[in-house]
Design a protein around this nucleic acid. Structure first.
Lengths: 221, 221
DNA sequence: GTCTATAATTAGATAGAC
DNA sequence: GTCTATCTAATTATAGAC
């Protein structure tokens, strides 16, 4: 199962794996999330996947293409996690059902941010400066997500169930409040000694966000 | 006021400025905030300050020392902005006064995050991975800030003025919700077409956060 | 203190043997 | 497809003239 390279004294494995592409992608998520696009080196990504650096250029076109594939993959997981939670057509949907759906969406988003911190890490790394990557990511992935929750929030605002915050601001309040403990989990552990990826933290966090963003949901007993 | 280097044909200014250190520091804030520690190059920092790259190593010990100086400077500004807003000694402080003080602290923090997005940008870049920089920043600057608001929140929680969220979680909800529009201002502009640094956005944002985090403040008319 | 030149290291990407 | 060797470009830091 193991063989030395004939022309060299170095002990190294020569392996033929069918899942290297997936392993490189998975590794890229983590490295891009932790270090950002510039800080993550293709050598470090390859090392985490137990592969060699040139394999990235073989299985992907470039470092940038690997980043794009990683972002596509993560947003696909997010879409899965939020699939059908908020109704696409709002006319005729009664308010209590919509409020419950929005609360469910908040909880799912918090759990997703905890389980896949890499997505929000990459988003916040990229969002700090204008770039082609940011433009592509915003138009391709963020905008549909944003447009999906905006009308529902507006309805809940109009009937007084949702907190008094405008659409655009609400989006960033929600994403910021829901993701920061997981985006900055290393800091959370240093600062508080607690583990934000624990079920206790995650559920308490989700409960808190639902309570403050949808005060009208539990207002009348 | 202008002189060519005698041994070279290149036209370049030789200037003697007394404020180069400050100019480099100011430039470093912006570059570190926008690109992160690894993504920000000392050449780009020097260029923005209209200086030469080796001047960074003359006026600062290294790129890391420049980063440290920038973080020290920004946290100094934050301390100034929040100076004395929340009373250090809570025994004997009546609840309405403390609630008003906390609301004021939230508003000041939002305005600070809008005016100096670089601090939260740097924090969120660094918080995604363990490092010596993160450990130093957390212990030196974040912890005192965290410890300053924690007891006040607990008091307001106990009397039911503050939202039902635990100390540690509240800290990240507050910081995340208050800073993300400014940390990711380039994305906000692409996604919404609005300018998060406008007074309208900032005040609406601050109002919204006070409303959701301190629901008991305006509950009884 | 400023500035040019450059050393030392590391990055992403490619060539070519296997 | 894997892997070693290497190219080119970019990085931080330093040397030394001015």
């Amino acid at each position: 199962m193991q063989s030395k390279a004939p022309t060299s004294g170095k002990v190294r494995l020569r392996r033929a794996r069918t899942d290297i592409r997936e392993a490189l992608l998975e590794s890229a998520l983590v490295e891009f999330g932790a270090k950002g696009f510039d800080g993550a080196s293709t050598r470090a990504i390859a090392r985490r996947a137990e592969a060699h650096q040139p394999q990235i250029n073989y299985h992907f076109e470039s470092k940038a293409a690997l980043w794009t594939a990683a972002v596509d993959y993560l947003f696909g997981l997010l879409r899965e996690a939020l699939q059908g939670v908020i109704p696409a057509e709002l006319t005729g949907v009664d308010v209590p059902r919509l409020a419950a759906a929005f609360a469910d969406a908040i909880r799912r988003f918090v759990r997703f941010a905890a389980e896949h911190p890499e997505l929000n890490q990459i988003m916040v790394h990229e969002g700090t400066a204008a770039s082609d990557r940011l433009t592509w990511m915003t138009q391709t992935h963020v905008k549909p997500f944003f447009d999906g929750i905006r009308p529902a929030w507006q309805v809940l605002r109009n009937v007084g169930v949702a907190a008094p915050i405008d659409n655009e601001i609400l989006y960033y309040v929600l994403v910021g409040a829901a993701s920061l403990p997981y985006v900055n989990a290393p800091e959370v552990r240093l600062l508080t000694g607690r583990d934000p990826s624990s079920p206790q933290w995650i559920e308490a966090h989700a409960d808190g966000l639902v309570a403050i963003l949808l005060p009208g949901l539990t207002a009348s007993p």
